[in-house]
Simulated scan of single mutants.
Amino acid sequence: MSNNAQTTQAVIVIGGIDAHADTHHVVALDTTGKILGDHPFPASSRGYRDALDWLAKFGLIDKIGVESTGSYAAGITRFLLESGVDVVEVNQPHPHLRARRGKDDSIDAEAAARKALSGQATAIPKVTTGVVESIRVLRLARESAVRSRTRTIVQLRSLLVTAPAQLREQLTERSAAVLVARCAGLRPDLDRLDDPLQATKRALRAMARRIQMLDEEINETDASLKQLVERTAPTLTSKLAIGPGHAAQLLITAGQNIERLHSEAAFARICGVAPIPVSSGKTHRMRLHRGGDRQANAALHMIAVCRMRYHQPTIDYVKRRLAEGLSKKDVLRCLKRFIAREVYHDLKTDLGLT
């Protein structure tokens, strides 16, 4: 190749992005690892375009390593994917790197680019422009309402403990629903709030009405989620013990682009149900690793527990494995792994990857 051809050959650029709420710091490397430049950009639609144009001026963009693709970098990740750029998801820098080099936005962006360049980072970010993202945000709103409702009920019961005796003795219901209804119907004398009895009635009524509003919000969100989930994953929700709530969580964990998980073993790993050996000497056994998405793990656990009680083939399987000498915990581990395999193939069918 002539010298002229070498000088005109396009430079291959690998980018790295460290994302924050207001700014994204971008670093450009060539294929030898040489830093071509670094620059901060605002976290806005205009900033995303400017960042991509800035990277492109160095040469042909091969791929970009991005931190926090599911949080601070969600917007720029969507923009880059829509622009046809190859994006890889990068974990935060290892503590050893931070101990050696310190930490700032430029260092973190460079570390992201180097992970993408070396092939250490290969994870494909989730697509957040489809129905699964809609399910995620609705589920997030529901979880927030449930937590607020639980916290308010606890506060209401705690307030009753110290309430004046004549009021406390009127509100002895154990059922939360009945207690909330009774408290919502209290009629404090608003002109006598200097009396602790009337002030307590006012506080209890306010808490009870807040709980009722949250109940209504939860019910409305559940109805929307049920409609979306059953339409998106009819195969999955048709299986025993997999209702809209569990199906929603499993959809969120897998993501709209489930092809990013190369096998059902990868899905099991991300759900925290992949077995790992814990053998020593004459003891030979496996256990589930403690990583992965714990909410997905909890969903699989509840599905397994329900099937152990109501699904006859599962009941027969449990009896057989217990007779073979396995503990109940080991049997549950096997069931969760099997259910993860079933869920993965159902999700591939529902998301159009059969």
Rank of each mutant, 00 (worst) to 15 (best):
L117I: 01
A116L: 07
G119R: 10
R101E: 10
D104E: 11
H94A: 14
I107G: 05
A123I: 05
A99Q: 11
D104W: 02
T128G: 03
A113I: 02
H94F: 04
A121T: 03
K115R: 13
A121D: 06
T128K: 14
E110N: 10
T129C: 03
R101K: 10
A113V: 01
D104G: 08
H96G: 07
G119Y: 05
A123E: 15
G102R: 03
S118K: 00
G102L: 07
S118H: 03
G102D: 00
A112Q: 01
L97Y: 14
D105I: 09
D108R: 01
P125A: 14
Q92H: 05
E110Y: 08
I107E: 01
A121P: 00
L117M: 08
P125S: 12
K115L: 15
P95T: 10
V127G: 07
L97H: 10
A112M: 02
A112F: 03
Q120H: 14
A121C: 06
L97K: 08
K115Q: 11
P95Q: 13
K103A: 10
S106D: 04
D104M: 13
A99T: 07
A109M: 02
I107T: 01
G119C: 12
K126M: 11
D105G: 07
A113R: 01
S106R: 14
A112K: 02
H96C: 02
R114Q: 12
K126D: 07
A123P: 00
I107A: 06
Q120V: 14
A109I: 04
T122E: 02
D104I: 09
P95H: 11
T129L: 15
T129N: 07
A112Y: 03
T128R: 15
D108I: 03
D104F: 04
K115I: 05
T122C: 01
H94V: 06
A112I: 02
T129F: 01
I124F: 01
G119W: 10
A111V: 11
A99F: 06
H96S: 09
K126P: 03
R98M: 08
A123C: 00
I107R: 11
S118E: 06
L117E: 01
H94N: 13
D108E: 01
P93G: 13
A123Y: 05
T129A: 12
E110F: 04
R114M: 12
H96T: 14
A116V: 00
G102P: 00
K103G: 06
E110T: 12
A99M: 02
A113H: 03
A109G: 03
Q120R: 07
R98T: 13
P125G: 13
R101Q: 10
R114V: 04
V127S: 11
D108K: 04
P125E: 13
H96V: 14
R100N: 11
A99K: 10
A99D: 08
R100E: 15
T122Y: 00
K126Q: 13
P95K: 12
R101L: 15
A109S: 08
P93D: 08
T128D: 12
K103Y: 09
P125N: 13
